[in-house]
Design a protein around this nucleic acid. Sequence first.
DNA 1: GTCGATTTGTTCGTATGTATC
DNA 2: TGATACATACGAACAAATCGA
Lengths: 207, 207
Amino acid sequence: MKKNYGIQSVPRMSEEVTRQLIQYIAAEKLKPGSKLPTERQLSERLEVSRSSVREGIRALEILQYLESRQGEGTFVSKPPPYLIPLSIIRKEENLVELHKYYQVSLLHARQILSLGISNQISIDQLQVDQADFWSSFSSLVDFVGKQLLNNYYLEIWQLTNQLLESFDFYLHVTNRFEIDKILEAYNSLNYTALTDYIQQIEEAKIV
Amino acid sequence: MKKNYGIQSVPRMSEEVTRQLIQYIAAEKLKPGSKLPTERQLSERLEVSRSSVREGIRALEILQYLESRQGEGTFVSKPPPYLIPLSIIRKEENLVELHKYYQVSLLHARQILSLGISNQISIDQLQVDQADFWSSFSSLVDFVGKQLLNNYYLEIWQLTNQLLESFDFYLHVTNRFEIDKILEAYNSLNYTALTDYIQQIEEAKIV
DNA sequence: GTCGATTTGTTCGTATGTATC
DNA sequence: TGATACATACGAACAAATCGA
């Protein structure tokens, strides 16, 4: 009885290839322009078919991380994109790197809430859990973000926030914040108070 | 002498598949959770091999746009991600959609320049073309952004800016802006003047 | 300029694992 | 339990592009 534990039942070969490729490039410190082993070599080393290797490469290619040219080979084209899905990264926690996501996340949270105020989006119907700041903050941003015309702010925020959560990053934020202060600033349309508080959040100590 | 300048000489089948899939989903107005035709059906309809179909699906899967489950099928998992590379989109200009990118782009430009000021990043060495506002503005953001610790701001900005440029979006911005005002505000560390001006840029008329 | 080796691009056939009924 | 539908995976073969001798 082998069932779906958690995310994915059976890891896909092509996904494994993607992971290995990222790891390989990092380990070998390959710069943009560097050539990767041929598909056949990768196929042998990783002990998967060439089809699977190709699928793995194709995924990294749409992220503009790799580029393969017929008759030449496959090359590293850019530094690893910030948007590599959770399922692929799964490396050790890197607080320095995660802190960058934290900043990007808060930038968008601030933007979403600011626009929420200026567009007079009411949050009366929102239920928040006073006890857990980050979960209630997430609910707030999510709630407001979904009602904005520009959905990209929310998308980037969700992406970064999701990543931070999955790595339990918020546990490393030692400062205690209060969701009430944010809700109060929001409801009283106090833009400066809101941004100031988010500024404080951004400057929190990470341990 | 035919060289590969720019994009790509011959479009790849798998890339064509990704394009078609995006188009198909949009045309059929498929919601998250909707099932796509089977790989074999797609293979027949698009007249490509199953391998190519799979490669195309794999690319959209890492963007978390599709999700395929063995024994079940392939499903739409999320609305089209904002980060779909230029080579794939290539649809008609959609000013409404592009305007969202414009907003995201300016959000990051503002953040980059603000951090540039507070980190006292000098722009004395920067050469700008006074005549073309957007090209000089790009140079500025790029120049400052590269010197920040957090490279994700720059990455998102580059992504959106690149897309806007490729669709000649800036030609639709009728207002005339002056790069000097921005440079002056930046050099005099006048944070509010800077953000105010960028605010004006964001509110520009698009025709 | 041609030839041959290398490498990615593409296809097809086959077998297997998984989910649903 | 069995049957069906579907994705997963492999390997062989050939096409097309690139590069160097």
